[in-house]
Design a protein around this nucleic acid. Sequence first.
DNA 1: TATGAATGAGTCTTCATTCAT
DNA 2: AATGAATGAAGACTCATTCAT
Lengths: 184, 184, 184, 184
Amino acid sequence: MAIDRDSVLKAAVGVLSRQPTAHLDEIARAAGISRATLHRIFPGRDALIREVGLLALRKYNAALDTAAIEDGDAQLALRRLAEVLVPDAALCAFLAGENQLFDDPELCALWENQDARVRALFLRGQQEGVFRIELSASWLSEAFFDLLAGVGWAVQDGRLAPRDSAFALIELFLGGALRRTSTS
Amino acid sequence: MAIDRDSVLKAAVGVLSRQPTAHLDEIARAAGISRATLHRIFPGRDALIREVGLLALRKYNAALDTAAIEDGDAQLALRRLAEVLVPDAALCAFLAGENQLFDDPELCALWENQDARVRALFLRGQQEGVFRIELSASWLSEAFFDLLAGVGWAVQDGRLAPRDSAFALIELFLGGALRRTSTS
Amino acid sequence: MAIDRDSVLKAAVGVLSRQPTAHLDEIARAAGISRATLHRIFPGRDALIREVGLLALRKYNAALDTAAIEDGDAQLALRRLAEVLVPDAALCAFLAGENQLFDDPELCALWENQDARVRALFLRGQQEGVFRIELSASWLSEAFFDLLAGVGWAVQDGRLAPRDSAFALIELFLGGALRRTSTS
Amino acid sequence: MAIDRDSVLKAAVGVLSRQPTAHLDEIARAAGISRATLHRIFPGRDALIREVGLLALRKYNAALDTAAIEDGDAQLALRRLAEVLVPDAALCAFLAGENQLFDDPELCALWENQDARVRALFLRGQQEGVFRIELSASWLSEAFFDLLAGVGWAVQDGRLAPRDSAFALIELFLGGALRRTSTS
DNA sequence: TATGAATGAGTCTTCATTCAT
DNA sequence: AATGAATGAAGACTCATTCAT
């Protein structure tokens, strides 16, 4: 059995999400293999990063499906999405740090497609009166992603407990930082 | 007239916040000088990045002072802080992308000091009943910074109008994405 | 088979003793390897030069031991030393050309230690009535080294036959250029 | 009055004889002028070094004339030469360290011419029975130069008193290190 | 004229990548 | 198949050199 591509990818995510400029040395060490072997599995650095990007985008897309964001109440759909995405927040952190990745037309298209679905979710929610209309759907989409990446970083660096991360994300994003006074 | 360190730093921020791995070539070109001159002003790449980091942290610290975040209502203090920080959001985006920067003890200490002030602001707000207590002060502080960096990226890439950025940041962060229904 | 550090060092001596400013390119070519490999073996130019210096000083020290300069007649001891040192005269030529090398405390200490032994040899010879007392022991030591380096250069450039070099060195140094007339 | 070329040359000798790879910065500083001014006086580094080389060779040649080495007893001629050369030993030290200098045909020719005169002196001395014939004239010439350069270094670095240098040179070179026992 | 400032050229260095075992 | 060893390519860096004052 060949070395497991997935385990190498996972190691790469762990290293690259924290340090996008990490050397292949570190990634190989994190994966427990040598640089040369890393090259046998992935034809080169760009290929490796592209694979990680593809993995991230596929998981993101799968999460959109799993959460069925086009169905039902927009708020609940977003809550489902957060629940599904948070375990892979590191992948989103990776994507946030490798914005050069989107020079690749295929990845860019994938991202656009998925981002469009999220924007559509917010738009739907705004039309249904669930989400605020003063904030554009695209900003909501971007901010949601920013916080998701932030959760990924915070968890990886031990500043946020994985168990709390979904709550922290969705509560802040949906409800904001202000306490709602009952009388207002 | 001598080359202005600050103008070079500004150009470096513009380039590095979008692309942390940018070559010195690009930075020099963006600053309108040659690589050699860039090296005369800053002894090396690390020194340049460190200087940009210092600039960012100093601006951040100055913003905390300007906004007087220790004074008055916590919500208003945070609103003032957002207003002051947003024009320099690119610097925060840079900081977010160069987390390796905090290996430097001095920069790390500076950051810790400033982050502590922001956490104290949230803590005060929570004690005063202004901010929600279900979200930890440190998460609020980190999330605020994440959104600030996100604003920086979005503005730089033309996805968010500079004019709207302060509003987008503070409204989402304070109020969240959900529309508040008057009857609930 | 792994590249031999010693063979690289030997090549470096050959190049650097003639031309202290030689590019790493030339040294690598002389060693039959690429610049990159040279860098893998020695972390940098300074490290390489330092290693060559260490090699030279170690050989010099070993020669002092081999010749047992502290034992027996001082003149014979010096003759033994010359015999042992001459094959490595190129190393001494290298040392003579890289006097900046002695900024390094360790190398400087090594040199001082060895030079002290040679000075002690001359002092002993002077006390035994073997060496002239009008010439200070430190000057004798230095002059001996100068001639040794000169032999190294002359041999490398083909102006002196290796076979004659020990004789040329020791005869000139001990006896001087003047013919001794029996009647005087 | 323009900056004195000679004072700059003198400063260059002082620096370059100790450190052949010295930067123009150091030479300019030693001469009390700026790098740019140094460039105005000498068209470039090569030109400067060539000028110093020419100066050294001219002084050497002048010394051969002043000492009238072709006249009278060979031993006395060499003693006169040593007396005349020792004050400029630093120049010889410079020449010894810049052997690349002799790639220049003119300098090479000059050197060859002068070296031939010195070799002729030794050859004459050997034929007159003054110098030993076991040591070739060319080796004697080279060794004399080596010791002269050694004197230059030793004086510059404070290991030899200028006052003693001529004596140290000529006594060692002519008489050698061995004490001559009256009975032998 | 003399100089601080700027730069072109070329070396040093470090990667990602390939090769031989 | 996996790896240590070797290398090509390209960026970082430092000079000598030139320019503008």
